[in-house]
Simulated assay, not measured.
Amino acid sequence: MKIAAISDIHANLHALDAVLEDISKQNCDVLVVAGDFIDCGPFPVETIRKLRALMPVMIRGNHEGYILDNIFSDKFEHPPFRALYAPGKWAATCLTTEEKDWLASLPTRAELNYGADVNVLVVHGSPRRDNEPIYPNMPDGLLEEMFEGEVRPRRLVIAGHTHRPALIRWRGMTLVNCGSVGYPIDGDTRACYAIAEWNGEDWLVQHRRVEYNRNAALKAIKKNASLQEAGPIMRFIQYLVETGTTAGMSEFVNRYIKSGDHPTPPDDMEHLEMAVIDYLRQYYNNS
């Protein structure tokens, strides 16, 4: 059994195309998509349709959750969240009703069984939360909490969320973070995915890095960063694709939320844009 595992595509279609071409040469039996395949990227519809045509094992991640919140609730309708989560709102407007319903029907975890107690668990973050990261060198106690009731020897656990490739052997299990197809943040700008193969005794894992047309992706992302589309947060995504690093996006978002200085719509989008531009200018100057 040979599994290709991809995650965190974030609607970067150029990166996805390159990875799928590489996978086609690896003689894999199964394709697994571990969530965050859309949101914060310029090609949500094209990404969904391409993946659905391949009929992979597929779950949704926290970013699909953000899009569903934009579709089925008013959670992000007020400042500052309306502007900060504009990528999800824009992606939601691009989808058909059938695609929205399909997205809502996706599970948050999947299990594959191949006999002889060989089991594969697919999650986005951890078994208990889609936004909880699994990192190398985590304290044993924390892993025990995460995997309470989930430990099975010979089990392969496929996860994403952190955008960083990782391989952890723990309690007889193999924990694999497949990295990010669309937006790696470990300083390597190439798309990343994982292949896991069962050899009869253990899971053999390799992470593969794939070059893709980043110039074409950046052109689409720049257009996507307009106030009429996904909005100012996409400026961080542009930096990420250019450098393979985050430019402190999470720090910025937390600081912006706590600032309390959030004008009402439609001025909130322009206010966020100026804040992002100012932050990135300082970041560039200090780096």
Rank of each mutant, 00 (worst) to 15 (best):
E132C: 03
I277N: 15
L31F: 04
I195F: 00
V33W: 00
P265E: 07
G65S: 06
I6C: 03
D140G: 09
V253N: 01
Y279W: 14
L218S: 12
A196F: 03
L84C: 07
S7A: 15
M249P: 05
A275D: 12
H63D: 02
D22V: 05
E77Q: 06
H163N: 14
E99F: 01
R235H: 14
V276M: 02
T108F: 08
L143F: 09
K89F: 03
A216P: 00
M269G: 02
Y284A: 12
R82W: 10
A225C: 09
E77M: 04
D188P: 01
R164C: 14
G125R: 01
R128H: 15
V276D: 08
N199R: 07
S226K: 06
T47I: 03
E197A: 13
I237C: 10
A225E: 11
E144L: 07
G179Q: 06
K89R: 12
I221D: 09
P80H: 11
M138A: 11
V122E: 04
W198M: 06
G182I: 05
D188W: 04
G141V: 04
V32T: 12
D101G: 03
H271V: 02
S126T: 01
K223C: 09
D268F: 07
D140W: 00
D8F: 05
A216Y: 02
C192Y: 04
T189S: 12
P56G: 04
E150F: 11
Q206H: 03
T93G: 02
I237D: 11
A275F: 04
K2D: 07
V45K: 15
G61P: 02
G125A: 02
K50W: 01
L280I: 10
R154I: 02
D188C: 05
T174I: 05
D267L: 08
L204P: 01
A225N: 06
R52G: 00
N285F: 00
A217M: 14
T96D: 00
D267F: 05
H63M: 10
H207I: 00
T162F: 01
E242F: 12
S259A: 11
I257M: 08
W90P: 03
G149V: 12
C94A: 05
P127R: 07
S73W: 08
G187S: 09
R214A: 09
V30F: 12
R190T: 03
E251Y: 11
Y279I: 10
P42W: 12
L240I: 13
A220W: 05
G244W: 01
Q282K: 15
E273P: 03
V157M: 05
R152S: 06
N224H: 12
T97Q: 12
K222F: 10
M55H: 15
W198S: 06
N213S: 15
Q206R: 14
H271R: 09
W102F: 15
N254C: 07
A18W: 14
R164V: 14
Q26D: 13
K223F: 05
